[in-house]
Nucleic acid binder design. Structure first.
Length: 669
DNA sequence: CGCCAATTATTTTTT
DNA sequence: ATAATTGGCG
């Protein structure tokens, strides 16, 4: 018996030791998916596939890091892992583009625009075409353009004349800015692979073995990319679970995984159906919820674990009571049942639901970490500082427009518009006009002085950076010089709000300093690219002993001994979007399934009868998915009586817990 | 152009 | 409920 047979179950082993031809690994929730692909990577290396010929792609930086760490752990060498290409789809796209993008007429040193940048650019496109933002919501148009790009449609392919016009203009603006958006990071590499033979030869030749994780989340253009990359060696292994496809509203197409053997003829399919995560009752409930889903691969997860505890259901009066109940239960599990804080997770559908839990957890001094919400680098105050860095880096016009009058320098729309028209007259960049502002007509004296001060500020920062000064110290001085703190105090009435934002600005400086420590070569452009491609809060992954608050989407791929599914009501699960009602009921069902299958030992399902939303009180009904959970799997939870008579062992535990709590509190300060 | 008051949107989200 | 945006006025 070899190592693979010994350490994997028969299905996992079959998948891990598959060598040639397309392979689909249908990996049910908790079926040891990651384990299987780690073993397969090692297997490939053992079979003599060279490191540089292996590509592993996933969606999130977190998943990539996990894969890297676990492969390194198995090989006892992190040096080898560096030669494997493990990457997100988007980071891989960047690599392909950095090599050959000039063939498409973009500059080699293109910049990457995130969603916010996209929106600013689109607004300008709409302005130029005199399309009113009142008539057409830029966010919606952005979504439509994004859909078109993800379907690999060029502007000319778009039916709707208005959309065609805006898409075209938007792409033109990207081009003159020397920028690409997130969607382009997949779409343009596909164009290169299609149109530029040397590019195809290089990449499709290089990757003899390709693995793609979370394949159920791929969209049309990602499928095209996969097909192109696999077109020479035809060794593509995708891993995923159609039951966990929850990103359809972002353009992912569950049919990609359901029709895998159509995209890659002759594909072998291996199903991993043994679940190692959930106890019996939890898995039983999950199986019943998902069973109704139409068009899925037939598979029923099974476990050899005992039935375990039944799922606890609880109905509360309102969201405050729901939070009270859960937080009390969390504490009880910690102090009476010996769970760690980090064993427990509270999950909900929308980020806004986290608030009531946060407030109470803070009040009760329960350590928690909140995952998701407005991402760190999307916060206004952080974006403002980053915009300065972008201006310093390459005079990026969008960034420049953002900060030219922030902090206020008496430069308003009139002046901005005049500069814009000057760029057209002179056929030069926005920044170049600013540099030569003295010779621009019709600009006020005050404005001219302000702009030339601004330009010399940027110049000074550039000089300091080219003379190898630390980025973080330049940023620090810049913030001080701009009197950013005072600005924030002025901008926010609430002192606590201003302080929070100042903290964020400080965290940004810390993030730069952290980036600079270590022996890797660092540069401003590399830092900026990193934060657009990997917006992971640097402290998000550091695991302390904390209760996790997370949305169902964020929880995919995670597991906890104890899960609280909160707000399991019509409106949240399934989610009602505005007046349109449910967007995709089946996807909502899958989301519910994802939530249930996160729990290993204990699952609580709670809901409230009433809820305040946008300041109005609403009556809430139980989620329709609850009726699919068999009666034998769950029980109503009563209010717990305080336990008065503790055993000696329990008292001892309580004391220990108290002690470690104090310790961690002190460490934090 | 800056400031204040009124108005309006915001609550799925890997990159 | 709250933060961000917009519109009118000085």
């Amino acid at each position: 018996m070899n190592r693979y047979q010994r350490e994997l179950n028969p299905e996992q082993c079959e998948a891990a030791t598959h060598l040639n031809g397309p392979l689909l690994i249908l990996a049910g929730a908790g079926s040891g998916k990651t384990r299987t692909i780690i073993y397969r990577t090692v297997f490939l290396l053992e079979q003599g596939v060279a490191h540089e010929n292996i590509l592993a792609v996933s969606f999130t930086n977190r998943a990539v890091r996990e894969m890297e760490e676990r492969v390194a752990g198995m090989l006892n060498s992190s040096g080898i892992v560096k030669k494997l290409t493990m990457s997100t789809f988007h980071a891989l796209g960047v690599r392909i583009l950095r090599r050959d993008i000039e063939a498409l007429g973009y500059p080699k040193r293109f910049t990457i625009y995130d969603e916010g940048d996209q929106l600013s650019l689109l607004r300008r496109a709409m302005k130029e075409h005199r399309v009113s933002e009142k008539d057409y919501d830029p966010k919606m148009i952005r979504g439509l353009i994004s859909n078109a790009k993800n379907e690999f449609e060029e502007p000319g392919d778009v039916r709707d004349p208005l959309l065609r016009k805006l898409y075209k203009k938007y792409d033109e603006l990207l081009r003159v800015s020397g920028a690409v958006d997130f969607d382009d990071l997949i779409r343009l590499p596909v164009r290169l692979l299609n149109e530029h033979e040397p590019c195809l030869q290089y990449w499709a030749g290089k990757f003899r073995q390709i693995m793609i994780d979370e394949y159920q989340d791929t969209n049309q253009v990602q499928l095209l990319m996969a097909q192109k990359l696999a077109s020479i060696h035809n060794n593509i292994c995708v891993v995923g679970d159609d039951d966990q496809s929850i990103y359809g509203w972002r353009g992912s197409n569950v049919e990609n995984i359901r029709q895998f053997d159509k995209s890659f003829p002759g594909a072998k399919i291996v199903k991993l159906t043994q679940n190692y995560r959930c106890s019996g009752n939890i898995l039983e409930a999950a199986n019943h919820v998902i069973a109704k889903s139409p068009g899925r691969y037939a598979k029923k997860l099974w476990t050899d674990q005992p039935a375990g505890e039944k799922i606890g259901m609880k109905v509360l009066l309102n969201e405050a009571d729901e939070a009270k109940y859960i937080v009390k239960e969390v504490s009880r599990l910690r102090y009476e049942e010996g769970f760690k804080w980090s064993d427990m997770s509270i999950m909900y559908r929308t980020n806004a639901q986290s608030r009531s839990f946060e407030e109470l957890l803070r009040r009760e001094r329960v350590p928690y970490r909140l995952i998701g919400g407005t991402k760190f680098f999307d916060r206004k105050e952080v974006r403002d500082v980053v915009a300065y860095l972008k201006v310093i880096h390459n005079s990026d016009e969008l960034a420049l427009r953002r900060v030219l009058n922030y902090p206020p320098r008496k430069i308003g729309t009139t002046t901005m518009d005049r500069i814009t028209s000057e760029t057209k007259a002179r056929e030069c960049s926005f920044y170049e006009v600013c540099e030569d502002i003295e010779n621009v007509e019709k600009i006020g004296k005050t404005q001219k002085a302000a702009i030339s001060d601004f330009v010399s500020l940027i110049r000074k920062c550039r000089e300091r950076i080219t003379s190898k000064e630390n980025l973080s110290s330049v940023a620090k001085d810049l913030i001080q010089f701009l009197r950013f703190h005072q600005l924030l105090y002025k901008e926010y009435e609430k002192l606590s709000e201003a302080k929070r934002r100042i903290e964020n600005v400080e965290s940004l400086v810390n993030s730069i300093a952290e980036y600079e420590t270590g022996d890797k070569k660092t540069s401003l452009s590399d830092y900026l690219e990193r934060i657009t491609l990997d917006s992971t809060d640097s402290d998000r992954d550091k695991a302390g002993d904390e209760v996790t608050l997370i949305t169902l989407h964020g929880a995919k791929g995670l597991e906890y001994p104890v899960v609280f599914l909160a707000g399991v009501e019509e409106g949240f699960m399934p989610y009602f979007r505005g007046s349109e009602g449910v967007e995709d009921l089946e996807e909502e069902r899958r989301l519910c399934y994802v939530g249930i299958t996160r729990a290993k030992k204990k699952l609580y399902i709670t809901r409230a009868d009433m809820r305040r939303r946008f300041g109005k009180t609403l009556e809430r009904e139980p989620s329709r998915f609850l009726s699919d959970i068999p009666k034998e799997c769950w029980v109503w939870l009563a209010n717990k009586k305080a336990k008065l008579d503790l055993s000696e062992g329990q008292k001892d535990q309580l004391f220990k817990n108290f002690f470690t709590d104090m310790q961690s509190m002190l460490n934090k300060k």
